[in-house]
Design a protein around this nucleic acid. Structure first.
Lengths: 200, 200, 200, 200
DNA sequence: CTCTAATCGAGACGGTACGTCGCGTCTTACG
DNA sequence: CGTAAGACGCGACGTACCGTCTCGATTAGAG
């Protein structure tokens, strides 16, 4: 509990056994996430599913949340890399489309991450990473506080994606990208003419 | 979790003792919410603070969350009543301003409700109530699914308010209303010219 | 257990409602005793079965045990009256037989009283009443302490009766009376020749 | 928790910690038994006195009674081993004397076990063990059912011992042995001439 | 036959112990 | 001799009864 949460996810261990253990834990978590929401999982379940000893968990992560962060972190990073160019170029719709396509391809994973008890933590991680990115690339408008822009942009995007994944009806990525563009991106970058999607 | 949460808040009991107990629990909860986040509260703490017996809690609410719902429900309802006209008239900025003013006046309460572990449940309650409203007053655009409109509009508004309340810097309600208008309302109702606030 | 048990059973109330209540409680208790052991009964069950209000119980008895005492007390008194002459006359077998016959006729009641969680309290009540009797009629031998005679005589008799009632095989009262005579009475009164029963 | 009560007392665990825990619980129980009757003890008290965690109790015993059984079981077994030869040889008085001597030496323990709320359970355990013994060594008379012989013999002996231990006056073991012999043993084995003790 | 006071039903309340569960630590015994 | 397995202390959970209490609504039985 010495505040070294970050310690854990940073140092990818060299020891082969440690790597194996982490993979086991990650896979256990992901497997269970498809069965029930994150906050109903117990560490015992995760370790059992992963095939590792109970105490082993704590040698790698201080809490369930830390493991989730570790597991989600990579995915989030990928997603953010696709989302970032949105704010620069004029091709915001293209970027949004790419993003939606990516999410659609990893539907199961993102469903688990964005709906269910995990959402809160994933959201946090998302915003944190987005803040980090924003710090380096600040080109933000004077019309609203920079941090609010990040929080709103990220949060709203996540919400829309989560809503999408939770629907029975299968909206095509292009549709969602267009909505994203209109509801979130355009208002943020200040351009008022949203490109219309040529979809259905 | 059988959806009977609403059962509890509806039937206001006639027995004077029951009313007293519920008030005690509500006040205990609110008092504690100013000290630590919702999810770190125990039911024992709440009952102790409220001055009621532990078991009494369960005679009224099945869980901490149900109590929170009950407590928040009224406030949320008020807030939503202010927010609804936004979507009709041309005076969306005025409505947003009223809303922000109201939140600002009950800053402490809304801070407790929107930041900290309570956020998730309050958000749910918010969206549920908004859905209920929307069902009656659907005047929604064909450009995006009605439910998504509700979810995004409500969620984004809450996020912005939460961000606002969490800041040290004291942004005036008008500023936030203007941002709300630009980032959330305008994109939803489709009008692209947001009125500029006369604030600094 | 401060000896005020007797307080309750002595004062038979005059008010018709009180009498009705007590009868209801007694009948509730007896009905339940045929279903499960005494110590698994709750006061709520007893009152429910008796058709009386919960609080009413405490207006009559301070505890479950007190009610049982009250209910059993009369029966025990009857039984003891049959058992007492045993120790005087030479006709101890006749008395034992009468006693067994009586128990056999009220088999269901005595089964409930002597087997199951009630046994302890009934035993106590039994011995107390026997002590009371013995105090008046002491003609006891110098060979063993008077009180031990009472305790052993009563206790052993109860045990044998309880065993009898718990059996599936249906031993005739005469058989049990003969055993009682041989195992308990004769050794106590010092006569060594037990009359043989003419039963198989 | 599948009704394997017997599981618990039989399998003495190999893990040093488990052994330590059980000892702690046993000692906690025995310490408290000298202060108040068994049925007024709570599991929390026992664990607190034993210095173990509350939940630990349930990792070893399913109930207070099971712990008592475990604790008493050994003692009862010893006592029964002394009592058994009574029924065989002609030296029943000698055996009874040995038994009383043993009880007298462990007076405090047996007082706790035989008087107070524990009595019922100890009695059960006693009779069960006696039944087990009797099954192997049946040499019983045709005059009374074998099981009744066991129940009466054991029960009456326990009662007399309990009475003895509860007295203020300090009867010598020999006196009690003589009484036991006359009231319980002789009638059971059928010999009518009880040896007279040479005691006061 | 009325009126008043006792008794009733109903059930909420403050307590207390229960037995369960999951946590995170720490020991043990096994490979 | 290191590591998995898992026992442990801890503490919150939700349940069940306890015995007390406050309510009207009945209903005796004294006048």
């Amino acid at each position: 509990m010495e505040g070294n949460l970050t310690t854990f996810k940073k140092d990818v261990p060299s020891d082969a056994r440690q790597i194996r253990s982490r993979k086991a834990l990650a896979s256990g978590l992901l497997a269970l996430l498809e069965e029930k929401p994150f906050d109903q999982l117990t560490i015992r379940e995760i370790t059992a599913r992963g095939g590792t000893g109970y105490a082993t968990f704590f040698r790698h992560y201080p809490s369930k949340e830390a493991l989730l962060s570790d597991v989600a972190s990579e995915e989030i990073s990928s997603l953010l890399k696709m989302a970032t160019p949105i704010l620069y170029g004029a091709n915001s719709y293209e970027s949004a489309l790419a993003l939606c396509g990516y999410v659609s391809q990893h539907r199961k994973l993102w469903f688990a991450l964005l709906t269910g008890g995990a959402a809160g933590i994933v959201r946090e991680e998302f915003i944190d990473q987005a803040r980090e990115l924003a710090r380096k690339t600040t080109i933000l408008v004077e019309l609203l506080p920079a941090d609010l822009g990040v929080v709103h942009g990220t949060g709203a995007t996540i919400d829309i994606l989560a809503w999408w994944l939770a629907q029975k009806e299968d909206y095509p990525p292009a549709k969602i990208a267009e909505i994203l563009n209109r509801l979130v991106i355009s208002p943020l970058v200040g351009q008022h003419a949203a490109p219309r999607a040529e979809v259905d």
